[in-house]
């Protein structure tokens, strides 16, 4: 069929999209609308991200650059000096993160498996257990850390009561350089694992049930089905869990501060055994008032976190199925 289609002339230069809400002024309106958000972020994210590097080169005085004293890379040299304790804080952080991430993932996955709905609907028990596991995650760290301080009291706490019921020796917990960090870990594991559970529950519900059933029909038992069918489906979430868990662990502050005597000099005790880099940064800047030095710590922390995230992403991409 032939139609009388007129020949198309060449297009005019300007075309306005179909959704432009206000004619001719859409350029300004768009910017006006994103401006408030950008302004907030500019002041407290973008500008500081640049400023932190600048401040780290000064003996910083709050009044500003003109009253600050240029020291160049001296703060970075001090960071590398073992006396400053920064390297030790990195070790403590690595230990903390290295324990927290696998533990919270393992526990989170186990709990998610436990409270996963077996039938088409959630039973009351499943809902209740989920809520109980999730609730700590949204509680303020200070309030719950105070309760955990009681729990870890060497003489009257629940922790040692449990140990003695199991005929194990009592521990000094927060007064012990060995056990203070594990005590903090237990608190944070309790506090944060609900997040992992939620993460894994969503992932588990995405595992196609028919594939699992097919595996069962093929004679696979629970462990085999988990390893060969379910685990590959979980790997993208696993990567997410590792990244988010690492970030969360590296930024932990309130609970460590409160449990290790933050009000008495910034926390991190005893003997700096719980001085993570986050605590170290806080103490440098807001207990000893070395802003410039603290900024240098911040820069290194920034780079470390970026490096860790990129490395995890790279490794994860290689081992992730079903992306």
């Amino acid at each position: 069929m032939v139609e009388t289609v007129p020949s198309q002339p060449s297009p005019p230069p300007v075309a306005i999209g179909p959704r432009a809400p206000v004619r001719r002024r859409s350029f300004n309106l768009g910017w006006a609308l994103v401006l408030p958000a950008l302004a907030f972020l500019a002041l407290f994210t973008y500008l500081p991200a640049v400023l932190v590097a600048a401040i780290s080169l000064f003996q910083w005085n709050l009044a500003g650059f003109s009253s600050s004293h240029w020291v160049g890379l001296q703060h970075y040299a001090q960071l590398l000096n073992p006396i400053s304790g920064f390297l030790q804080s990195l070790t403590v952080t690595a230990y903390y993160v290295g324990m927290m991430v696998p533990l919270s993932i393992a526990l989170g996955l186990g709990l998610a498996w436990l409270v996963k709905n077996r039938g088409p609907r959630l039973t009351a028990w499943e809902t209740f257990t989920r809520s109980a596991v999730f609730l700590p995650y949204i509680t303020p760290a200070i309030a719950t850390s105070i309760i955990w301080i009681f729990i870890f009291n060497p003489q009257f706490g629940l922790a040692n009561a449990v140990l003695s019921a199991l005929h194990l020796p009592a521990l000094g917990w927060l007064t012990s350089t060995t056990w203070a960090l594990p005590a903090v870990m237990i608190n944070n594991l309790w506090h944060n694992v609900g997040f992992m559970v939620i993460l894994f529950l969503a992932a588990l519900s995405n595992v196609p049930q028919d594939v699992v059933e097919a595996a069962w029909m093929d004679g696979a038992n629970g462990a085999v089905a988990f390893w060969h069918i379910i685990r590959p489906h979980l790997s993208p979430v696993m990567l997410l869990a590792v990244i988010l868990g690492t970030i969360q662990a590296m930024q932990t502050f309130g609970s460590i501060y409160q449990m290790t005597g933050g009000q008495f000099g910034g926390g991190g005790g005893p003997l700096n055994s719980t001085t993570t880099t986050a605590i170290y940064l806080y103490k440098s800047a807001f207990v000893y008032f070395h802003y410039g030095y603290g900024a240098a710590v911040g820069v290194v922390l920034f780079l470390v976190m970026l490096g860790v995230a990129l490395a995890q992403k790279k490794i994860g991409e290689r081992h992730t199925f079903y992306r």
């Binding site: 198309q8 002339p9 060449s10 297009p11 005019p12 075309a15 179909p18």
Partner: peptide, 10 residues
């Protein structure tokens, strides 16, 4: 009315 290079109405 033009949408980019196409005339919807001419």
């Amino acid at each position: 009315k033009w949408f980019g290079p196409v005339a919807a109405v001419h």
